[in-house]
Design a protein around this nucleic acid. Structure first.
Lengths: 106, 106
DNA sequence: TCCATATTTGGTTATTTTGCCATATGTTCA
DNA sequence: TGAACATATGGCAAAATAACCAAATATGGA
């Protein structure tokens, strides 16, 4: 792996890392249905406002979401919608795990 | 988000987390071309053998790869090949980032 | 202008992750 | 059996992350 590759994989890993948190992943999936304002997340997620804000900042800084300030509210939306198409595969991994596990305990 | 959802998103995030490291991501992509033994990774990655072994253990524990011991060597292969289809999208994110950035400095 | 509301930022602490070293395990072959 | 090789594991220190609280900033309306 050369220098250039290393930078590329750092960049890719950063995007994945941004999604690799339950709250952020959930928020990203919500955004797949359309933009949401921070307050809407706050209602649904059991966490401090500042925590949510920081999670959104991580997604933004990774280039996954973009921001739109309108009046007092701040709206977030997916910048690259394909982000969620691969969740099917993540789910496939989980299902394969569950199967393997239930096979064990039988 | 209810209890059940929480567990689901924990599980999904765990899979993403396993891929969210440059070395692990690179190894996973290598495996998309077919199985590899640990020694092959060791040659290509500049890291301690034990480090590589631990990274592979993370992928295995996440259900992304499976192991096959053959003689003295240990071979790893992708368990759920779709894992890599979504890298296209991750790359799209990166490209959109680069574009935005180069627009700024113009 | 002053206030209430919406969101972000800074600081702190606890937890997790990473990577290296040394050591242990398992396998082949002489 | 014992040497040589391939890989895994345990332990530890450094770095990165996460969550909370308090305080700062920005906006619209009275």
């Amino acid at each position: 792996m050369n220098e250039k590759d290393k930078l590329l994989y750092d960049a890719k890993a950063k995007v994945l890392k941004a999604l690799a948190h339950p709250t952020r992943l959930w928020m990203a999936e919500q955004l797949a249905c359309g933009e949401r304002c921070v307050c809407e997340f706050a209602d649904a997620v059991e966490a401090d406002f500042s925590t949510i804000s920081k999670h959104l900042a991580v997604l933004k800084q990774a280039g996954i979401v973009e921001v739109d300030k309108r009046g007092k509210q701040v709206y977030y939306r997916l910048k690259v919608p394909c982000i969620l198409t691969f969740m099917n595969c993540v789910e496939a991994v989980i299902e394969s795990q569950i199967k393997a596990h239930s096979a064990l305990i039988k």
